[in-house]
Nucleic acid binder design. Sequence first.
DNA 1: ACCGAATCTATACGGGCGTATAAATCGGCG
DNA 2: CGCCGATTTATACGCCCGTATAGATTCGGT
Lengths: 203, 203
Amino acid sequence: MGHRDDLLAAARTLLEDKGYAHITARDLVAASGTNLASIGYHFGSKSGLLNAAIGTVFEEWTDQLAELAMADPTASPIERGHVTWAAWLAGLAGKRRLLVSYIEALAQAERAPDLRQQLAELYRTCRLRVADLVAESLGDGTRGDDPRCRAVATFVVAVCDGLAVQWLVDPDGVPTPDELLAGLTTLWSASFPPDGNDSPGHT
Amino acid sequence: MGHRDDLLAAARTLLEDKGYAHITARDLVAASGTNLASIGYHFGSKSGLLNAAIGTVFEEWTDQLAELAMADPTASPIERGHVTWAAWLAGLAGKRRLLVSYIEALAQAERAPDLRQQLAELYRTCRLRVADLVAESLGDGTRGDDPRCRAVATFVVAVCDGLAVQWLVDPDGVPTPDELLAGLTTLWSASFPPDGNDSPGHT
DNA sequence: ACCGAATCTATACGGGCGTATAAATCGGCG
DNA sequence: CGCCGATTTATACGCCCGTATAGATTCGGT
């Protein structure tokens, strides 16, 4: 097709190196070699175009993450987390702009129900995939739709997001994945002493 | 004082119920009963004012979080995490707008070095406080400046941020804190089997 | 009472934005 | 060819924004 595809392609590019909030209609036109009015004609509005583009970009990103976590199915769950977080942090440096775009989109989503739903969908599928990986590496027949797997998946994704935020603001303040693992190991052996009395009281 | 304080107060209010990115200079003037030019006079620019206000708002927020985590010093570390995350999630509903403002600020920080540094500082002190709490609840003499405590603190904060993001986009998709704890418990016992052979290989 | 500095007021400026409109062009088909 | 709907072009419109300017006012120190 014509302008429609050109605009979508330009939007994808600009999202990766200019940032959601700072893309103007005229930027899109310049980058695509199309015309100002084509945006309205094909997508209704600028944000219509941007939201159409953003879904595909971030879907690919989460795809990459999921693939990373799939490596080495024999590893223990926490070891997988370790590997995943390490790969995640290592990959951030090359995706800085994209990450900022993502955060901007997150903020915009509050006022753009379509975008918000799209992001919600993105998280749901991402969590589902991670939950399956978790179930698999538990290796005790637990299914991916077990609430505990869902919870762990939420957790893993949350850590990725949270680490990314801290890395964005203060790269040097974020511990290495190895330090992270060491910290968690300490934490857990203090919480569940090997001389094993109990598990923390929760209902 | 006069307009200076009025503007700061208005900025704080607007941050909580309109969102960083959508506050205009004229909003601030209207909400403070001051004058358009007073912004430039006292703060140099609109963003100067906003950045001055944002520090105090979020500092208070992290203060609240730290206080929550301090309760019950006898609890195990993971139990403390559990309590902290529960309180965090419970508090989000009343802070939705503020959370959006925070995310917007995060995005803006990429282009505003002052703001970024301010946020970095915020995270550093927050992590420090959490690290001290972690050290304390380990109860084995470990100091708060131990890298493992720092790592755990980063981790805890990351989970808070990450959960908040997922909650913002898709509140129903986020597990309850209890589910979270159950998931982590399962995860860990699979990673470090009680019949204790070893710890995952890391350097 | 007076003066200079600090503060406040009113308004103007220039610019960039997203969108709408109307005319030109293209492309398939009778 | 001649028509018509789909697309593309060029441009105009109106809005709102952040900031600057210049004059009025207030206030502390003497």
